[in-house]
Design a protein around this nucleic acid. Structure first.
Lengths: 261, 261
DNA sequence: TAGTGGTCTAGACCACACG
DNA sequence: GTGTGGTCTAGACCACTAC
């Protein structure tokens, strides 16, 4: 098996006008020549400057959008993206979503999109350890705001007992805060993190371009003696969010390590 | 502050041909009418079917590419993406990168792109707790393969003592395996996870389209009494990777919780 | 050689923002 | 109304794949 040491230089600068142009603009953004929030020249003007058609400029701008460097606003212009980043601790999954926002200077709000009793899917049923088929659960979808920006969509499933008794409260506040304030003491969780590109539906909910990366935080949280209290996932704008953890490293099982070639 | 309950129906189906078309194709993919690996009709044919220009079809296909649903190959066609997903445990950051690959049926390999002694940046210097200015570190960049697919780019910084003594071995194997096999016992780590869209450079290294989400696993790993042993980040293809953890949930500090509205 | 996706053009029309 | 980005067209040429 052979590998080339660097990417085929093709594609980065191989004459392709739209790439050449977007890389030039990228450099101007990264050196600060265009500052965050600043407006770039119009598509027409850029076409004049680089001597190419508007189509090619639009392709170049599309490249920058995909890299999260600029956003466009119809009728207004092309603007350099402004950076934000909010950290959430994995040690307290979502528990501190609201206090994390508060501590980092944002006003956190939730907007409940739906709160319904539905038949559990097999996946949810398994996670919440529901006994038979056709068991019901409460299904909630809500949008989480930092100040006035939507930064995450949360999809949560509650066992009926919990969803029923806390229906009103769950629709008005953050999941974890509401649970612990009402005597449901969470003590363990299984979580995973992955990332997906935004679909059209998600891109509309979160006011981002199609395909922008979203962090997906999957959680299954227990209370008492390993009783599932809630499961679900939080899809958050990756340009706004970051998850941190401090961990103790287990000693490896040497037998599973692969020997160097 | 008022919120609308659903996205403005605009944009999802508001006549825009390229969206209508990409959503129709998306549905066919998700229902399995087009199976993973299968070739879609050519751009020309799709244009005939939907009665639109090739430009519009290309825009629609671009939408699908951004959502990770299809990939294109010049001269061959448009193909439905095949799914993979490899899980890595956060409890053993990278330690088990190789064994995780092995356990999940993949052949893991690394290709060292560079291994150089450089002046430490202030960020690296701080993380590795290097004393003065102009301190040097070893800088390694390598690509990690699962079978023959590049799935991650790892950027690592080592203190000189470690980099120097293990230079050869570090260039041939996985970071953590190499360290523990050579008596450097890692016992704690600070990590964080975020996600970014692939730049051109990264998209070439990892053979993915521009803008595809990458998971960024930042790590700072200690040995002995909190001595930094290595820091860096692993940028992995989000369509291939997932990080998992089992955690104990701390009891919240009620004073920081925000009251429901 | 034929078929495919990739790039680029020139131009039309629409929707939105702002003065 | 003017300027801006968003959509769409029709057509040209190139680069790669496969036969």
């Amino acid at each position: 098996m052979t590998f080339s040491m660097v990417p085929s230089s093709q594609g980065i600068d191989k004459q392709h006008l739209h790439i050449t142009i977007s890389e030039k603009l990228k450099q101007k953004i990264e050196t600060g020549e265009y500052e965050p929030g600043e407006r770039l020249p119009s598509e027409f003007d850029l076409g004049q400057v680089f001597g190419v058609s508007r189509t090619t400029i639009r392709k170049a701008i599309g490249n920058l959008i995909q890299q999260g460097l600029v956003t466009t606003q119809q009728g207004k212009g092309i603007f350099v993206t402004e950076q934000h980043k909010i950290s959430f601790s994995m040690a307290n999954p979502l528990m501190y979503f609201d206090s994390a926002l508060k501590q980092q200077g944002y006003v956190g709000q939730v907007q409940s999109l739906r709160f319904q009793r539905i038949k559990a899917t097999s996946d949810v049923s398994r996670k919440l350890q529901l006994p038979a088929k056709d068991t019901e659960v409460y299904w909630q979808e809500k949008i989480i705001y930092a100040d006035d920006s939507p930064i995450a969509l949360d999809v949560t499933y509650y066992p009926v007992a919990i969803g029923e008794s806390l229906a009103e409260k769950l629709q008005q506040g953050f999941t974890y805060s509401t649970l612990v304030k009402n005597g449901i003491h969470l003590n363990a969780a299984e979580v995973s993190l992955e990332s997906i590109p935004a679909s059209y539906e998600l891109s509309e909910y979160l006011a981002i371009p199609l395909g922008m990366p979203l962090l997906v935080f999957n959680y299954l949280v227990y209370h008492q003696q390993h009783q599932p209290a809630v499961c679900g996932k939080t899809l958050s704008r990756s340009d706004w969010t970051c998850y941190t953890a401090e961990i103790e490293v287990d000693q490896p099982d040497f037998s599973t390590l692969v020997d160097p070639l």
